[in-house]
């Protein structure tokens, strides 16, 4: 089976989000960059399918040149091939991102049996790129996968609902968008990281269409932060804590 995992380079946020001076993007220079948590699971699933069924697992990302870091990480996590749709550093919206990916897949890349995406990106969370790609490629799509199995050519996908899970069965080739918790992504060893860097990444110039949704400016919301009332230090504070719990009527 030929599998594809689409990933996105996002800033690795810690305790707060810092914007660049022009308010056009998140400044990740201090904290570094990573791929979204859902996408780590997309890569892992693409790799596991190939380990069981044979074939090639490809990692693809749209982003600036530095996105190679995340593609190398995907290869370090077991993917065979890497593809970069090399874009400027501007903010790509969901329509242009989906069109660029679908055009690349329809173009020179191989015919994939399974295309994995994160359910939504870690930063912009537009909830639509995987679905738009599926429509352009005329493939069925199941979203929010928390469990994935292959039964011959049929993908059996489960997603969480309160009290249980909904099961979808869909014939491959298909698009599947996944959520963290689908699997436990392997951590790339130092050796596999080193080896990944030797791999050639295929670079493609993406097609660029105009998004109807156009970001103008980012803003960090005014925090409602106030300092917590410190009840005390160590075990001596528990009597005050119990009083608070009684005031809140939870005990």
């Amino acid at each position: 089976m030929e599998t594809l995992a689409c990933i996105k380079r996002v800033a690795d946020t810690g305790a707060e989000i810092v914007l660049t001076e022009d308010k056009q993007s998140v400044d990740g220079s201090a904290v570094g960059y990573t791929m979204g948590p859902h996408e780590e699971c997309a890569v892992e699933e693409a790799v596991q399918v190939v380990e069981e069924e044979g074939g090639t697992a490809t990692v693809l990302s749209l982003g600036p040149e530095e996105t190679e870091e995340q593609i190398y990480e995907g290869i370090g996590r077991g993917a065979d091939e890497g593809v970069l749709l090399e874009a400027d550093g501007e903010d790509w919206g969901p329509e242009s991102t989906a069109t660029a990916i679908a055009d690349a897949v329809e173009g020179d890349l191989e015919d994939f049996d399974l295309l994995f995406f994160g359910n939504e990106s870690g930063d912009n969370a537009n909830f639509q790129v995987g679905i738009r790609v599926a429509h352009q490629l005329d493939l069925p799509v199941v979203t929010g996968a928390k469990d994935f199995d292959l039964d011959g050519e049929t993908a059996v996908v489960k997603r969480d609902v309160p009290g249980g899970s909904e099961v979808f069965e869909v014939e491959t080739p298909a698009v599947v968008t996944v959520k963290e918790g689908l699997n436990t992504p392997r951590y790339p060893s130092m050796r596999s990281r080193m080896q990944a860097k030797k791999q050639e990444i295929e670079t493609i110039e993406p097609t660029a269409i105009e998004d109807r949704l156009q970001m103008q400016e980012l803003e960090t919301p005014e925090s409602e932060e106030s300092e917590a009332e410190v009840l005390g230090e160590g075990p001596e504070a528990v009597d005050d804590a119990v009083e608070v719990l009684q005031d809140l009527e939870v005990i």
Partner: peptide, 18 residues
Amino acid sequence: HRWGGSLLEHAEMSGETK
């Protein structure tokens, strides 16, 4: 909302039906 509401995006949307 971006980042689950930790960041706000001001944007414009065009098209006949949005």
